[in-house]
Amino acid sequence: MKIEAGVLERADGSAYLEIGGNKVLAAVYGPRELHVRRIMRPDMAVIRCRYNMAPFSVGDRKRPGPDRRSVEISKITADALRPAVFLEKFPRSTIDIFIEILEAEGGTRCAGITAASVALADAGIPMRDLVVSCAAGKANGNVVLDLSENEDKEGEADLPVAIMPRSGEITLLQMDGHLTSEEFDKALNLAVEGCKKINEAQKEAIKNRYGEENG
């Protein structure tokens, strides 16, 4: 696993993340003026997110442009990050998050959220905590952490989770598959433990960029 903050010149904040076979780039613009009046909030900023997969990131070329899957992931990513940001500090503006999956190997939505949260911090946006995401699941009858592409396709369940580690509050929870109540408890605990490990790497990336005194 590798996380690096501040990798792009133009973006206000950016982060690059490699986890397993995933390579993810996230960039943040804002807070900036919002041109779409319809979604403007007079008392706070809005967060918009675009999750996109590169055509060359998967085995068979993916046609460029949004599909149903990427639209859903964009939405849940924005939802997962929103609770961490002090939105009320920036009324009538927008914070735009762009996530590019350059190479995909299972668990890209979690990688995207983890990277985007580092990019938000790199952009200097005030936050309650970093958001970190990790999936647990069930494959071959066992509850396991961070399913690979094959485990995800053939496994029995997938449970992506995002948390704010300081409070332990959960900002993303999805489930796809079949689990007993006990298995769910086990999987959720496992995912939270995984998140905490990744969170250390996030903090490290920000410290590397800005030095110990600001960490």
Partner: peptide
């Protein structure tokens, strides 16, 4: 095929 990703510049839009 090219994509000017919105992350690349504040002037590029999705």
């Amino acid at each position: 095929n090219s994509e000017l990703l919105p992350m690349a510049s504040p002037t590029f839009e999705p």
